[in-house]
């Protein structure tokens, strides 16, 4: 299938998943376009649109939790950042995604899961 067409399909499917979770696509449209393109390539190569910013291990249980949108499996961590790890999705109230930092899993856990970032 044509990459552009598949990107639009994924975009529409994911929209229905992220909306009830309180997320939207990043206002950074260039980033969104780039990430969706990577996901289409990953889907062609590996069978699923995996997160382009996290590493697959080959273990199904691990890797299936990295299929986009992976928010449900990283909810507290991503909520603390107000974005997902790769930045494709942000909280609905975010207007300037460049202000949001990537906080590693360890930093998040050590913060006592407090909203101090």
């Amino acid at each position: 299938m044509d990459t552009g067409k598949r990107k639009e399909q994924l975009k529409a499917m994911f929209q229905r998943v992220i909306d009830p979770l309180g997320y939207k696509y990043s206002p950074d449209t260039e980033l969104v376009d780039f990430l969706l393109e990577q996901e289409v390539m990953l889907e062609k190569e590996k069978g699923s649109p995996f997160c382009p910013c996290q590493g697959l291990t080959g273990e199904r249980e691990h890797d299936m939790q990295l299929v986009c949108p992976c928010i449900p499996f990283h909810r507290e961590h991503f909520d603390a950042m107000k974005r997902c790890w790769c930045g494709l999705f942000v909280h609905k109230d975010v207007d300037d995604p460049d202000k949001l930092l990537q906080i590693s899993r360890k930093e998040f856990e050590e913060s006592g899961k407090k909203d101090r970032f």
Binding site: V17, P20, L21, I71, P72, F73, R75
Partner: peptide
């Protein structure tokens, strides 16, 4: 309901 996120149904 989706077990990991019940908002998704």
């Amino acid at each position: 309901e989706f077990l990991a996120a019940p908002e998704i149904k």
